[in-house]
Design a binder for these strands. Structure first.
Length: 297
DNA sequence: AATTCGGGGAC
DNA sequence: GTCCCAGAATT
């Protein structure tokens, strides 16, 4: 046991746990380049690993470099995105690929400040790329990390609303000294939150940590603002998703009437949804008034 | 700081 | 039905 493979203290305990229980995810394998890691991080925004896996495999094969994706149409990218959700992510990724190809020599920048200026790359993703693709010692804070820190350090069952400043400071204090150790620690922290210290039913019975403030306090229940759960069934949001699914499946442009929806039979909702999709650039209208994925007519 | 942006699977 | 998921952008 030594500093790099584990040892005592939270970082060591998690590192040992990660060595034994970490999943063999393809974007974690040695040799995976920064561009493919970027792809995985964007896909994983609010989307579970299991759903990302098959799509990532196809993307990594089809668009091996940013310039490859940049030369595809936005519509093609949206098709490959499939039903991962939040399709604007795919649009931003396409835009990001163009910027990387034109302004960054077809490579992914390694510094957080530059990454943060790219479309679709925010506080989490920029640091995840710097950490996992370039081995830098930067705090990487996703929902898993926030939850693990809330419990083990602050003794709360739930992290509550995010505060980027506070969250980054919290995790920065925990990082081991060296780049490699810090990078590994962040991966372990995220994996631990995803597999053991989970939101719904944490497996405290098999927890590898010697000390946990939440456990020490007797697992106090979360007290704080309730998260507002928004409806989906029957909403315009669902309608937009269904329209995108129809257009992804279509070979070419589709007339407005053919987008009539058996699931609502509400032309007003259909047109509202189409309007939003047009505004967001997720679809385009042909001169004859039909609808299509961008660049596919 | 609060809202909005999909979709599917677990419970 | 509710909750959750490697968040970002906008207001």
């Amino acid at each position: 046991m030594n500093a790099s493979t584990g040892g005592h203290g939270p970082a060591g305990e998690l590192s040992d746990w990660y060595a034994a229980h970490g999943r063999d995810l393809p974007w974690r394998r040695a040799g995976t380049d920064a561009w493919r890691i970027l792809l995985s991080e964007v896909m994983l925004q609010q989307t579970p690993v299991a759903r990302v896996l098959p799509v990532w495999e196809r993307w990594a094969r089809r668009w091996p470099a940013p310039s490859d994706m940049a030369s595809a149409t936005a519509g093609e990218v949206l098709r490959e995105w499939g039903s991962l959700g939040y399709p604007r992510r795919a649009l931003r990724l396409h835009e990001c690929a163009g910027i990387l190809a034109r302004e960054h020599d077809d490579t992914v920048p390694g510094d957080v400040e530059t990454l943060l200026r790219l479309p679709g790359i925010g506080a989490y993703t920029a640091r995840a790329i710097a950490c996992f693709a370039y081995g830098q010692r930067v705090p990487v804070v996703d929902i898993n990390v926030r939850r693990v820190v809330a419990r083990t350090v602050h003794g709360r069952g739930d992290p509550g609303p995010p505060s980027t400043r506070r969250d980054l400071e919290d995790v920065a204090e925990l990082l081991p000294a060296g780049d490699a150790d810090a990078s590994r620690f962040s991966a372990a922290l995220m994996e631990f939150g995803a597999l053991t210290c989970t939101a719904r039913a944490p497996a405290c019975g098999t927890c590898p940590l010697t000390e946990c403030r939440w456990r020490a306090l007797g697992f106090p229940a979360y007290e704080g603002p309730k998260r507002t759960t928004q409806k989906f069934e029957g909403t315009d949001r669902q309608a937009r998703g269904r329209l995108m699914a129809v257009l992804r499946a279509a070979q070419g442009p589709v007339a407005r009437e053919r987008l009539d929806v058996a699931w609502t039979r509400d032309p007003a909702q259909r047109d509202r949804a189409l309007g939003t999709l047009l505004t967001d650039g997720l679809i385009e209208q042909t001169p004859s008034g039909e609808f299509a994925l961008p660049g596919e007519h």
